[in-house]
């Protein structure tokens, strides 16, 4: 136990008026009532999902919708991720868990042995996609994310690769990434040279 481990918290002091909470409650009730009695609002807000989805004109834009993640594959069908941990570093919800290992392919150094995303914890901000140096992780237009257990909602590598298969026609993988040197996951083989390994 170090001194900096001990945090002393003070409860904020509320005035008598603030402790009533009445104005805030009334404010909330007002919004509810407004929606309850407005026909126009009701028509706009209530949807008979799943028969009626929000994909009509002027509504959900699926092209840049941030739904379930996927892990892209390179042209050789291998996982494109190089296990750099950039996405898990960037993730504000700490929902990406990666275990890296030496890749079985000669033109790559590292690859993810395990890659788990907790889809329940994720806030779908898209930071991981932005951080990835090889465009391996992407959010897909797939927003129908359901499961019966929490464990089911932790997507592992296989599941994420499967999402890629399901969505690659709707949303193809982005342009080849800018980096080279074995990191492209086989996209520009002319640059990537196999690592020559030598034992002594």
């Amino acid at each position: 136990m170090r001194d900096e481990d001990v945090i002393v918290l003070e409860e904020p002091q509320l005035s008598a008026a603030e402790r009533l909470y009445l104005p805030q409650i009334l404010d909330g009730v007002k919004t509810t009532l407004r929606h309850t009695f407005s026909v126009k609002n009701r028509k706009q807000v209530v949807r008979q999902y799943p028969e009626d989805t929000r994909q009509g004109r002027g509504e959900l834009r699926l092209a840049n919708y941030r739904g379930v993640h996927r892990l892209n594959k390179d042209p050789d069908g291998r996982v494109a991720c190089v296990a750099c941990f950039m996405c898990s570093t960037a993730c504000p919800a700490h929902c990406i868990h990666i275990e890296a290992g030496e890749s079985p392919w000669p033109d790559r150094e590292k690859y993810p042995v395990k890659f788990d995303i907790d889809e329940l914890r994720c806030i779908y901000c898209g930071m991981c996609e932005e951080a990835c140096p090889v465009d391996a992780i992407e959010l897909t237009p797939n927003y129908e994310l359901v499961g019966l257990t929490r464990a089911e909602m932790i997507f592992d590598k296989e599941k994420l690769l499967q999402v890629y298969e399901e969505t690659k026609d709707v949303k193809p993988r982005k342009n080849p990434p800018v980096t080279d040197y074995g990191l492209t996951g086989g996209q520009s083989k002319d640059v990537a040279q196999p690592n020559v390994e030598r034992k002594v």
Partner: peptide, 11 residues
């Protein structure tokens, strides 16, 4: 120094 240095930082 960077002439031949690989762009390896991610790995």
């Amino acid at each position: 120094y960077l002439l031949n240095h690989p762009l390896d930082c991610p790995v």
